[in-house]
Design a protein around this nucleic acid. Structure first.
Lengths: 121, 121, 121, 121
DNA sequence: GTGGTCTAGACCACA
DNA sequence: GTGGTCTAGACCACA
């Protein structure tokens, strides 16, 4: 499931976080589901256990996962909603950045056109 | 003119680059204009000269500025067009990111609506 | 009677110990009473027998329970007093923690007020 | 300033966090103050840099500190208030635990007396 | 087996 | 110098 690109400039632990969030967004991971264990995932994707731990840890501090020592990590009940909200926040942020481009002289209608083309494939 | 936020996680040299690009986009800086000297800017904004140097170097590497040994740094003739292109590339990249959100379940029409509202203030 | 929360960060064996102690404090369990067998409790609350064993062992080590090989575990005669003492020790410890808060700038009178309100419902 | 007890059951990184919070409570550390650098503190108290990093990192995720890569860690502006609130929450939690003891048969008045004695030295 | 903590040490970007 | 990331590997408590 999870694949990391060691050459990427985005930290491995962040790639893992992003992919897990993505799987929750897509419904591949649901509240209560168990995440692959630290050691197991570590071997599956050839990444040091500490790095996996760091990723999982951050998922816990953001209330997306829950750690149950001795049993594993689980997707929290609130995870789907937290991620839905964060996706919306992301959209808003992106729109603000687009808006900023109009201040730099890019035409509004052209922006809308460009986006529509993208969205409709 | 230039202001840096030392508490920001975006590197200071990048903040400087961004602001200079912005001033070019807005027409405050034109082809041939002289940039404030490394030493002078260093003192004006209380930033280590090495950091200014790094920013100016990168502006040269991307053909936005030209270094004239003994005289200083100047905005290149191609700068306005380079930056216009880079703004368009930025727009394209932002649209791709927005597109990615639709894959995570955010409705396309809603996105367009959201953006239109932003653009029309 | 006994319920464990597998999602809690307090170890399951400790949850079991605490609840048995509590039942003794409340008089639901008296000196000489037989504890549910390891196997039986294991099935009742869906917890690994090793975990129950560990809890019972610790109750024996602290003289709250007695193991009678072949017959089971029983509440010791001293259990009620041991637990009463441990409750007092707990109170003392909590008061020390409260005291520590005053060193961090919380007003003493306010603390007393806060506690009184709690105690009087 | 900071001292850790390697034999303690509370993790070193947590001891560090607690002591920094304490210093903020006491006003020894104020908003904007720079924390000792990771490497420096690491040597001062003979603890691995990674452990210091973990402590500082957690201070950042709780908005008590701010990391400025290349410059250091600083006490955030909100830190004093965050910690004041957390101290109050701690008090409330302790009072709840004390309250629970009354359910186990400890006399209310005796509790108040006990606490008053402690508070008045 | 599963998570939690810690050390030792390396390499990178940035100031 | 300062923080950030990562690997390798050890030891512990708990299930």
């Amino acid at each position: 499931m999870i694949k990391v690109d060691v050459m990427s400039r985005v930290p491995i632990y962040e790639q893992i976080i992003n992919q897990i969030k993505r799987m929750i967004s897509l419904g591949f991971l649901k509240a209560g589901d168990k995440l692959e264990s630290v050691r197991s995932l570590s071997m599956t994707i050839s990444v040091n256990p500490n790095t996996i731990q760091k990723a999982y840890n951050e998922l816990c501090t953001t209330n997306i996962a829950i750690s149950v020592p001795g049993r594993g990590y689980f997707i929290s009940n609130e995870a789907p909603e937290i991620i839905r909200n964060s996706n919306m926040a992301m959209l808003d942020k992106l729109c603000d950045q687009v808006l900023d481009l109009t201040n730099l002289g890019i035409d509004k209608d052209m922006i809308i056109e460009h986006l529509k083309k993208k969205l409709n494939g």
